[in-house]
């Protein structure tokens, strides 16, 4: 399999004032590849560098050291629109000062395919409708985003990313705002997109069990460095996780899928003292 994305000794440091913000610090010597057609997960504790890695890959910030290549070409030499035709991001919920409708949002995914166009073409509109149908938001097309639930909004953003027709679909913490049912639906959607459309998927998540379940390979980040890369069973291993996350965990095997399941080894119950009433 060919590598779709390659990180070669990538390093990045946020400028001083941003260092206090969440996710802001240093990435050091990060190297890995994502194969064409795989589902790849990036996991790690808060502020391990997951968000920074995603920003580097989408050129929101430039890499300071090393090189990031897409289909063998350095992304620093791609125009923004060229990159956006190949890589689409489903973001976490973002602030929205202006209430655009679902359809308007999804049509924005067509921008990189015709940046010089003033209005979208008929083809663009057809593709947007197909994307909305695929994620089940077609009947919400005319509604402003504000009126949607968290799960519906997420599916609208996913529809936008599908309308972008990328080679690589990046999901940034897709389950952070969703209840159990939507978590299950998200896992199903990732599999469907990967199998039916042949899209390579990059899942960035702190949800270890979702990542273990849907990903072919995982990258575990720790303090801006690569701690492990490999299949879930090799990465989600007790000693490694305890060192990276700094707490006791237990790792079992899901009897249905055979994938690892990680749980916090909760502290033993402490007997209540008679004073603490």
């Amino acid at each position: 399999m060919n590598a779709l994305v390659e990180f070669a000794s990538v390093g990045f440091t946020y400028p001083q004032p941003e260092r206090t913000r969440e996710g802001g610090f240093t990435l050091t010597d990060v190297s890995f590849g994502i194969a064409d057609g795989e589902v790849f997960g990036v996991i790690g504790p808060n502020s391990a560098g997951k968000t920074t890695l995603l920003r580097l890959l989408t050129r929101v910030v430039p890499a300071e050291r090393g090189e990031i290549r897409l289909e063998g070409r350095p992304i620093a030499r791609l125009a923004h629109a060229e990159l956006a035709r190949r890589v689409a991001v489903v973001p976490q919920d973002a602030p929205r000062p202006f209430p655009f409708s679902v359809e308007q949002l999804v049509l924005m995914g067509r921008y990189p395919h015709g940046p010089g166009r003033f209005f979208e073409s008929d083809d663009d509109r057809a593709l947007a409708r197909a994307a909305m149908a695929a994620t089940g938001v077609l009947e919400l097309a005319a509604l402003p985003l504000e009126q949607l639930s968290g799960g519906e909004r997420q599916r609208a953003m996913l529809a936008r990313a599908l309308a972008q027709e990328p080679k690589l679909l990046v999901l940034d913490e897709p389950t952070s705002h969703l209840d159990l049912r939507y978590q299950a639906e998200t896992a199903a959607l990732i599999r469907r997109v990967n199998a039916e459309r042949g899209m390579t998927v990059l899942l960035v998540s702190h949800d270890l069990n979702l990542a273990a379940e849907v990903c072919d390979r995982l990258l575990l980040l720790s303090r801006g460095r690569v701690a492990r890369v490999g299949p879930p069973a090799a990465v989600l291993e007790r000693d490694t996780l305890e060192a990276v996350f700094g707490c006791a965990v237990s790792v079992e095997v899901n009897p249905v899928s055979g994938r690892p399941v990680v749980q916090v080894a909760w502290p033993q119950e402490v007997k209540r003292s008679s004073l603490a009433r």
Binding site: V60, R85, Y111
Partner: peptide, 19 residues
């Protein structure tokens, strides 16, 4: 058209191909 994308935030606009 690009201003519409900028309304989603700068990061989102860049990820959709806007300079």
């Amino acid at each position: 058209r690009e201003l519409n994308l900028l309304a989603l935030g700068e990061e989102a606009a860049v990820q959709l191909g806007v300079d």
